[in-house]
Each structure stands twice: as C-alpha cells, then as structure tokens.
Amino acid sequence: MKLYYSPGACSLAAHILLNEINVDFDLERVDLKTHLTEKGTDFYQINAKGYVPALEINPGLVLTENVAVLPFLAQHDPQQNLIPPSGLGRAKVLEWLGYLNSELHDAYAVFFTAQLDETQKAAAYAEINKILNYIELYLENSDFDYLVNDNFGPADAYLFVLTNWSKLIQHDLAPFKHIAALRDKVAQRPSVQMAMRDEGLI
C-alpha cells in the first residue's frame, strides 16, 4: 500500500493506523498548493479530488476519504481490536468518524481556506468550541478508555489529528481537560510517535 499524505493534514490519521497494523507501506508527500507529489507526479491523476488522504491499495486502486480509509485500515487485522467487526460497535465508530469529518474537520478548515477578520475568527473559534464541548461532555460521562470503547481506534486517531490543528490557529485547548487527557494517551502510542517523526512534526 502507499499513502499519499501532507504533513500534519488529516492523512496523519491514516499514517497512524498504517503503523498500528504493521503492514509494509510507502509514503509519498503531496504539496497541496501545487498538487504535485514529491516525485513530481500530478496528484490530480491519482486523486481527482485533489486532497489527502489517498490510499493506493494496489496499482490503480485508490481509496479516499477518512470515513472510508480509516475503517478499511482498522479492519486489516481483527486481532488488534481497532474496530468492532460488525453491529452497534462498528456503527458507533462510523458515527464518530462522520461527526468528526463533517463537523470538527470543517470547523477547523475555515482557518485554512479563507482570510478571516477578527469577528470571523471569533465566530470560527466559537464553532470549534461548541463541537469540542459536545465531545468533552461525552468523555466526562463515559466509562470507556477511548471514544468508542476501551480500545484505541480510528476515531481516536482522527480526533488527535484534528485537535493538533489548534496549535496552528492559536486555539486554546486548555478548557477541554478530558479531550486533553485522551490526546495525551494517544500521543504516547508508538504508532503516533513514529508517524509524527516521519512527517517532521516532532
């Protein structure tokens, strides 16, 4: 497999899971401004949408969108319990991935896709905080070690990556103590440390 990625982008979640499942894979960096890969390939020829992640499973067979890529990788080795095989447990993973993708990802993305004045920034921060408050309250009332159950999984990787963006936009995560605790736990995983190093983030 080959993961087309941009350092620190949402493709980092797929990079983390690839490290978790211990498969042989290649990485190819994408410049999202020029849409060229590090080998000089037109990224639009690989993924016509023009953004990461793009997971090349076999030559010519490419999977995109985190809500598809992350469960696909997580189910690679059922013994690792990264995702329930079926039923409500798996549906809860998909529910979280859908929420993170459509709500939290989009709330952060505003800062990267437009020049915001101070009023617009305040509104954008408020939107992020509203979503994080929902997650914070959920974690506060949950008996699980991670978002879905007691096992690390794709939703945890995705939440970790998205909340990393708070540093880039000068957003304060300090009020979200349960999210911070989950982030700290995820950050300690060897798969996360390896991915962060490989992408030049630490």
Rank of each mutant, 00 (worst) to 15 (best):
M1T: 00
S6Y: 13
A9E: 09
C10W: 04
C10K: 00
C10Q: 12
S11I: 02
S11M: 05
A13H: 11
A13K: 02
H15L: 07
N19M: 07
E20Y: 15
I21S: 09
I21V: 09
I21D: 06
I21N: 05
I21M: 11
N22P: 11
L27F: 12
E28L: 07
R29A: 13
R29P: 13
V30Q: 04
K39M: 14
G40H: 05
T41Q: 15
T41G: 10
F43C: 00
F43Q: 01
Y44S: 01
Q45E: 14
K49T: 06
P53E: 11
A54Y: 02
L61G: 12
T64N: 08
T64V: 07
V67P: 05
A68R: 00
A68L: 03
V69I: 05
L70T: 00
A74T: 00
A74E: 11
Q79K: 13
N81H: 13
L82Q: 08
I83H: 06
P84I: 10
P84A: 10
S86Y: 15
G89Q: 09
K92A: 14
K92Q: 12
L94Y: 09
W96I: 01
L97P: 04
G98A: 13
G98I: 06
L100D: 10
E103S: 01
A107K: 03
A109L: 10
V110H: 14
F112W: 13
F112A: 04
D117P: 02
Q120Y: 01
K121T: 00
A122E: 15
A122S: 10
A124P: 02
A126C: 01
I131W: 06
I131G: 04
I131D: 09
L132K: 08
N133T: 09
L137S: 07
Y138F: 09
L139Q: 03
L139Y: 11
L147Q: 08
L147C: 03
N149A: 07
G153Q: 02
P154G: 11
P154F: 12
A155H: 01
Y158M: 07
V161D: 07
V161W: 08
S166E: 07
L168N: 14
I169E: 08
F176E: 00
F176N: 02
K177E: 12
H178W: 04
A180R: 10
L182M: 10
L182K: 01
R183E: 14
V186N: 02
Q188S: 15
Q188P: 08
P190L: 05
M194E: 15
R197T: 11
D198C: 05
E199C: 06
I202V: 07
